Computed example of a mutant assay.
Amino acid sequence: MEINNIKIGDKETRVPIIQGGMGVGVSLSGLASAVAREGGIGIISAAQIGFKEEDFERNPNEANIRAMKKEIIKAKEQANGGIIGVNIMVAMDLYDEYVEASIESGADLIISGAGLPMKLPGLVKGSDIKIAPIVSSKKAANVILKMWDRHYGRTADLVVIEGPKAGGHLGFSKDDLEKDIAVDEIIPQVKEVVATYEEKYNKKIYVIVAGGVYDGKDINRVMSLGADGVQMATRFVATEECDAHINFKKAYIDSKKDDIVIVSSPVGMPGRAIRNPFVKRTLEGRIPVKKCYRCISKCEPATTPYCITKALINSVNGDVDNGLIFCGENAYRVNEMTTVKQLIGQLINEMK
Score class of each variant (00 low, 15 high):
A331E: 02
C295P: 00
N330E: 12
I296L: 14
T338S: 03
N335I: 03
T304R: 07
E336G: 05
P305K: 05
T303N: 12
L324D: 07
C307R: 02
A331K: 00
T304C: 12
Y332V: 01
C299H: 02
L312W: 07
G318M: 07
Y306M: 11
T303K: 12
P301G: 10
C307Y: 02
V334G: 09
A331L: 03
Y332T: 02
S315V: 08
Y332S: 13
I313Y: 10
S315D: 09
C327A: 15
T309G: 02
P301D: 11
K310C: 10
T339D: 00
A311K: 05
K298H: 14
T303G: 13
M337H: 06
E336I: 04
T339L: 00
Y332R: 04
T304P: 05
C299E: 06
K310L: 11
N335F: 02
Y332D: 09
C295L: 01
N322T: 09
T303Y: 02
C295Y: 05
A302S: 14
C295H: 03
I296Q: 06
V334A: 07
M337K: 03
E300N: 15
N330Q: 15
C307M: 07
E300Y: 07
K298F: 10
F326T: 14
K310Q: 11
M337Q: 04
S315K: 13
N330C: 07
L324C: 12
K310S: 09
V334I: 14
N317A: 08
G323S: 15
F326G: 13
M337C: 10
T338C: 00
T303A: 04
K298P: 03
N317F: 04
A331F: 04
R333D: 14
V320H: 00
N317P: 04
C327S: 15
S315N: 15
V334L: 07
F326Q: 09
L324Y: 10
D319M: 12
I296R: 04
P305A: 10
A331C: 02
I325M: 01
I296P: 04
M337N: 06
G318S: 14
N314C: 14
D321R: 05
E329F: 08
L324M: 11
T309D: 01
A331I: 10
G328F: 10
V320A: 00
P305I: 15
Y332K: 02
Y306R: 09
C307H: 05
D321S: 14
C327F: 10
N330A: 12
G328E: 07
R294A: 11
D321K: 12
G323A: 10
G328V: 06
Y306P: 07
